[in-house]
Design a protein around this nucleic acid. Structure first.
Length: 576
RNA sequence: GCACCUGUAGCUCAGGGGAUAGAGCACCGGAUUCCUAAUCCGGGUGCCGCAGGUUCAAUUCCUGCCAGGUGCACCA
């Protein structure tokens, strides 16, 4: 409903003399539909005009507001409430939604701008746990949301394919490794070796030294170390890509930590040239105390670079390559300090674009009795979660809809949807307690609830099309006439068209705060509105003219639900 | 010790400085000769952690305190 919103903002600004952005910021959507579709609180004007907000609202309401969009404007106490023409919503906007189809909700406000999204970034040789799911799912949703606003988006998977853990893996593999088992399930097996290393290292501390030695050999290009590393990396990457394909996620770049090895020395020189580097206990550090940030380590005393140096090198490379307007790092909140140090260093190194780099943090996933730990083997593997969710969905489909064709792909969409949505529904900053019952719940505030609403609409439209033949409107031939649309007006119908009208505003809001949860909540509400409509307003058995109108209405809802779920990386099956 | 995040219904959580603080789960009851009951309807709850402050207005912003989580030099 952006044209309406703009019209209201412009009018209020010119009538009151308030700057548009200020009006825009205070314009709200009332909680009660009786109070209109938009509301403007007049309190801020009271002091300036030396009148009561009630009087100001009353005066503003006297102006001529009626337009193509606005039916009436009323003052209720200190508020100015805006009522959008029902005929505009039903007869103009609804057909627009149907014509736009998959494009409905998209905008062009990001046209010409490039956004980089760094997300997922699993560690080679460490299996995907439910902890990695958050970055992956949030990052993927953000990519899609930015694209919907017209931004050019580059999704980057900054693979954790370098670091001392490879020394450990090499040691473990040389001691206890089995080539055949490695080929069978690479990531799982490497992970077992990794856990075993930490167990054995408790009694045999020499292992740690050995691991450091092997990592140093790897860094120097030792052929044996190099060969093992490449082997581990290639096998793991294949494993990950299988998982991404399953989730329907793809990246524009897989450049990982190891790809910046030859730029690390230069990066440190760049920092040194700015006087940011000093030696301390044999290591290289950057002192940021004067900015209220703890000193950070750039290079270990053994000469090995640390990940902040890799991040610096990668950021510089990325700016040279993409000249991005914004770069997001979808990384856990426990790394907040790292990003403070990292961004401050970029700024001090003279890169003005550092201010366009943003850490998008999210909370930890933990168990009732404490946090997950890769080293201790206290994790839940994502594959297991997905498998169980899809299995349960499969059983549910079998029970509820035994004649459904292609049950497997429906079960996959529903099971994965439940897991993905469960991760996006809440504010990302909050910690999450992992709970099987909740993950495997398909009722209430879940993706299956939304998918079910969508499937019901599909079912209505399918039956309508079958009843009227292939030339009918429900088959996509022609639109309902204005006369037919004019019959819409039940409260349930109004709620739907109003909710649909707000779709792109929600996308804008989600992008503004990098919070996909806004969109997830919105879709839940739309689905709830639809289910109410479904129970109170029969479509197929309604009189012909009303039926045509309602068919168009639910076709619109279908578009918004489907487009919205797609933005979250969730499929909407036709039946379930 | 210092820094950051979180504290709202029994539980999990929404809540854009503004109108009467809302959902889901759980619990109880009801709805299917009718478009998929993965649905809908009804039933009831709140010192919005505590104390100050800013403001015409604070669950929302600021400060302090309390509780939980996370981080703070050779992991990422």
């Amino acid at each position: 409903m952006l044209p309406v919103r703009k019209e209201i903002v412009t009018r209020i600004a010119s009538l009151t003399g308030l700057p548009s952005p200020e009006v825009e910021a205070s314009l709200e959507i009332p909680h009660d539909p009786k109070l209109g579709e938009y509301a403007f609180p007049c309190f801020p004007l009271a002091r300036r005009l030396k009148k009561s907000p009630q009087a100001i609202a009353a005066e503003l309401a006297e102006h001529t507001w009626v337009s193509e969009h606005l039916e009436r404007v009323e003052s209720v106490g200190p508020y100015l409430n805006f009522y959008v023409h029902r005929s505009y919503l039903f007869k103009t906007l609804l057909p627009q939604i149907l014509r736009a189809g998959p494009a409905y909700g998209t905008l062009a406000e990001g046209e010409g701008k490039t956004v980089l999204v760094d997300y997922s970034a699993p560690n080679i040789a460490k299996p995907f746990s439910v902890g990695h799911l958050r970055s992956t799912v949030i990052g993927n949703a953000l990519c899609r949301l930015y694209r919907a606003l017209g931004y050019k988006v580059v999704g980057i998977n900054h693979l954790g394919d370098w670091g001392t853990q490879f020394g450990k893996l090499i040691v473990a593999y040389r001691r206890w490794g089995d080539a055949a088992r490695l080929l069978e399930e690479p990531v799982q097996y490497l992970y077992q070796l990794y856990v075993r290393f930490h167990q054995e290292a408790e009694n045999e501390p020499v292992l740690e030294d050995e691991a450091r030695t092997w990592f140093r050999r790897l860094e120097k290009g030792d052929p044996e170390a190099r060969e093992l590393w490449e082997h581990f990396r290639a096998l793991s990457l294949e494993d990950f890509q299988r998982l991404y394909r399953y989730l329907g996620i793809s990246f524009d770049s897989y450049m990982g930590e190891s790809d910046y090895n030859d730029q690390l020395a230069g990066t440190i020189e760049l920092a040194r040239a700015r006087g940011l580097v000093k030696e301390s206990e044999g290591a290289l550090v950057a002192d940021l105390e004067q900015y209220g940030i703890p000193t950070c380590l750039l290079q270990k005393k053994d000469g090995a670079a640390l990940y902040i140096t890799r991040d610096l090198a990668a950021a510089i490379y990325r700016y040279q390559t993409y000249s991005f307007d914004r770069m997001l790092y979808v990384v856990g909140a426990e790394q907040t300090l790292h990003f403070q140090q990292f961004f401050k260093l970029l700024e001090l190194m003279g890169f003005s674009w550092a201010e366009n780099c943003l850490h998008v943090p999210f909370g930890l996933i933990h168990f009732k009795d404490g946090r997950m730990s890769t080293r201790q083997g206290k994790v839940i593997f994502l594959e297991e979660v997905l498998k169980r969710a899809v299995e349960l969905a499969r059983e549910t489909v079998e029970e509820k809809n035994p004649t459904l064709p292609d049950k497997d792909s429906v079960a996959r969409a529903v099971g994965l949807g439940a897991v993905i949505f469960g991760d996006l529904i809440n504010d990302r900053i909050k910690d999450v307690e992992f709970d099987w019952e909740k993950v495997l719940d398909f009722a209430g505030e879940t993706a299956p609830y939304i998918q079910y609403s969508h499937a019901r609409i599909c079912s209505i439209l399918r039956r309508a099309a079958a009843a009227e033949g292939a030339s009918g409107k429900a088959s996509g031939n022609g639109e309902a006439t204005p006369q037919e649309l004019a019959l819409l007006g039940e409260p349930e119908e109004e709620a739907l068209v109003i909710a649909m009208a707000h779709f792109s505003e929600e996308i804008v809001r989600a992008v503004r705060d990098n919070r996909p949860s806004y969109l997830a909540r919105y879709l839940l509400e739309l689905a709830r509105d639809f289910n109410k409509f479904y129970h109170n307003c029969p479509v197929l058995t309604a009189k012909k003219e009303l039926r045509e109108g309602r068919l168009q209405l639910v076709a619109g809802v279908r578009i918004v639900l489907r487009n919205g779920l797609a933005l979250l990386g969730i499929e909407a099956p036709q039946e379930m």
